[in-house]
Design a protein around this nucleic acid. Structure first.
Lengths: 210, 210
DNA sequence: TAGATTGTTAATCGATTAACAATC
DNA sequence: TAGATTGTTAATCGATTAACAATC
């Protein structure tokens, strides 16, 4: 299904496609043309057809795309149906906010455990997720493999923990720490969520020359 | 200082330049060449020189760039010294996590107030920031103008609140809700932090074809 | 059938990389 | 001065847009 090398620009648009298609699906819409979808997303019809053609022909001439079907295809492409498991490292404010507010399962990811060092949280459950001591990370992952590690630990321990995650078989790290991780393993994917970078880009854009 | 139209690719790299230069600065390094900086950031020296030349010539032949100076120039370019004020809308888990963990001031932004509707939080201070009732938003912003609104409210009220922020003079919205805001005002900048999009991109990248 | 709309090939546009004269 | 390194111009590469035959 996945052809050749898909450019990073396309990969970044896929989740947006999914989100829009899901909204349309939940609103009960049945079909849409690349033209209409483009208008609602601020893209050209050409680009949408070009993007989708990286993965296959999901449309039909004269009809457009069936929304339920296309939504399903894109969720497959995104790996939402692969049963990815995740563990979260760091149950501080941000970690808890993610556990309590972010719906991992809506992205097809199961959050199975959290790890921290603070005695007041180890042993508890947060939003139904058990919190273990970081010392038990390797043992836990040995028994319950996970493909994603969510990193919400302090900056100072980020690289060490990242290394342990990778050594325990994690394939991707969702990095919320504000450092650029240096993981040397070749096939490990790092996805950074750099709040400060985002805010600074916003700051730039609203800072007109006087 | 800001020339022509700076491409979005360049804008997205600027905060990374700042972060790296700041790290080097704090480590006491004095100068760096585009070559060395490129190596440490995973960019080509050419690209760095090309990027910086959008804003001026900050280097010196045979020497490279003075780190303290370049860091300062980039912080200016990013608007970090414009005294931007921000208010945060929604003091739930995510809003609190931002207030307690994210250092707005390190991006040159002052967080002056939070707004919520929950009686148990209105009137309190969180990390030193006073929490007001959303009903007082317009009155507050009338007296304490802010250029940035941080949106951590539930999805259902996001667009309504965004409209009120814009009507009260906010120039940019840092949007943490998982919807695409529809703000019709022309010069308003929306910066989205879509967690799900980020996680799905990661999911795609670790989902090899079987 | 006629109209609509796809998937794909070709054309354009923009961003990245390479090259090099200028100069510290 | 000689070596290093910039800023900038030209060349290359890749991504977006346009066009259109195929076809539902």
């Amino acid at each position: 299904m996945k052809k050749d090398k898909v450019s990073s620009a396309v990969i970044r648009r896929l989740p947006r496609y999914y989100r829009h298609l899901n909204d349309l699906y939940l609103a009960g819409v049945e079909r849409i043309s690349s033209n209409a979808l483009g208008k609602s997303m601020g893209l050209t019809a050409s680009q949408i057809r070009q993007d989708l053609s990286c993965f296959g022909g999901f449309g039909q001439q004269g009809y457009g795309y069936n929304i339920e079907n296309l939504r399903g295809e894109i969720s497959d492409i995104l790996g939402m149906n692969r049963g990815h498991n995740a563990v979260i490292l760091g149950a501080g404010n941000l970690g808890r906010a993610l556990m309590e507010n972010f719906h991992f399962e809506r992205s097809g990811v199961a959050l199975s455990a959290a790890f921290d060092v603070a005695p007041d949280v180890v042993g508890q459950r947060l939003s139904g997720v058990p919190v273990h001591h970081v010392d038990q990370l390797e043992e836990y992952l040995g028994q319950h493999p996970a493909s994603i590690g969510v990193l919400t630990v302090p900056r100072s321990v980020a690289n060490r923990i990242a290394g342990r995650l990778v050594a325990s078989g994690v394939k991707g790290i969702w990095n919320f720490t504000n450092i650029e991780l240096t993981v040397d393993a070749p096939d490990i994917v790092i996805e950074n969520v750099h709040f400060a970078d985002s805010l600074l880009a916003l700051s730039y854009m609203i800072s007109e020359v006087p």
